[in-house]
Amino acid sequence: MRKKIQIVRHVVQLIFFILLVLVVVGTVCSFQIGGFQFTEPLGAIQVLMGGSIFFTPEKLYILLATSAILVTVTVLIGRAWCAWACPVMTFNEFIEYIMKRLRYKPVAERGKKKIELGEVRFATLAGVVAAAGISKTPAWCNVCPIGAICRTRSSGLLVAGAEMLILGVVFSANMYEKRFFCKYLCPVGGLLILLGKISSLIIPRASEKCTGCKACEYICPEGIPLFRNPDMSKCTKCLVCYSNCPYGAVKIDVI
């Protein structure tokens, strides 16, 4: 059961990847399936910073309503988007799997002193919003890997040189530390963390069986020391701790 939940998660990820990258009209940034419309909140924030949308209220309301979907989900169950739906996380986990099969160990895990970046993603988030305000354009969208991974289809798969360049950078960052982009740089992740500060529907916790072996801190993609009952807003609800705790000491608090 504990291991199976990861298979369920990977299936969900795959479904979302196929949906978002190949099937839907649009990309993650904004898409439509039937009558369902979705906009990515960071894109919406950048457009709002651009300012000109306030001249056309009808489009403004649609934008706010469609971007409220992910905001609501995140406020309720936290940053689950990252580990269950985001195509970049799926891509990174796939790379991670391949590296594991090839017996390649990321540089940061080789026991040497690694650079501790801390919470740079809030700085990227602030930078994205500031740049959108300064340049009056959704400036982040130019380089966003989440958009790039979806745009590869629209601009013709492998011919899309720049998209491949961006993904290549994200890919090589994985060689240094697994899920480097998601862990340190992603401004969308930063935004979802801020939104998910108040969420408390699904939270992994250490139960009485916990021996404090610190395995969870090592296993967790976000490096959350679960045995200390820390702040869980960073948690992506990937439940890797739940599946891999050697003592089965992680319980999931639902409400």
């Binding site: 959704p138 958009g147 979806c150 745009r151």
Partner: peptide, 26 residues
């Protein structure tokens, strides 16, 4: 236009003539 376009590619996907393309970054 550029202050609003988030390059989501919805126009690309709905175009019946496939006339709209997302320009590459470079």
């Amino acid at each position: 236009f550029s202050s609003r376009c988030i390059s989501c590619g919805r126009c690309v996907d709905v175009c019946p003539t496939n006339g709209i393309k997302l320009s590459g970054l470079l």
